Computed example of a mutant assay.
Amino acid sequence: MRTGTRGLVALLCAALMIAGGCAKKEIVKPEEGARMAAPTPPPAPAAPAPAKTEEPMAAQPVSEAAVKGEAPQEAVKGEEAEAALERIYFDFDSYVLSQQARDTLYRDAEILLKKQPAAKVSLEGHCDERGSDEYNLALGEKRAKAAMDYLVTLGVPAERLSTISYGKEKPLDPGHTEEAWAKNRRVELVIVK
Rank of each mutant, 00 (worst) to 15 (best):
A158T: 10
L189Y: 06
C127P: 08
E129Q: 09
I164R: 06
K168H: 12
E169F: 07
C13H: 05
S165W: 01
A37C: 13
V192G: 08
K25M: 13
V187E: 02
Q116I: 07
N184K: 01
E55D: 09
A23F: 14
V67Q: 06
Q100R: 07
L123G: 06
L151F: 06
E169D: 11
D128Q: 12
L123I: 14
L8A: 12
E110Q: 14
H176G: 08
G167N: 11
S162M: 03
T163R: 09
K68I: 00
V9H: 03
D108F: 02
K183V: 13
G167E: 03
A84K: 05
V28L: 13
R107P: 01
L105K: 00
V156S: 00
G20L: 12
P48R: 15
S94M: 05
G69A: 03
F90I: 03
T177N: 08
A46I: 10
E159M: 04
Q100M: 09
P174D: 12
P117T: 04
G20K: 05
M148I: 00
I191A: 01
A49C: 04
L11Y: 10
E188V: 07
H176C: 05
M1Q: 13
P72W: 03
I27Y: 04
T153Y: 06
P42A: 11
P157L: 06
P41V: 14
K145C: 08
T5W: 14
R102C: 00
P50D: 01
A14G: 15
R186F: 08
L105G: 01
A71R: 10
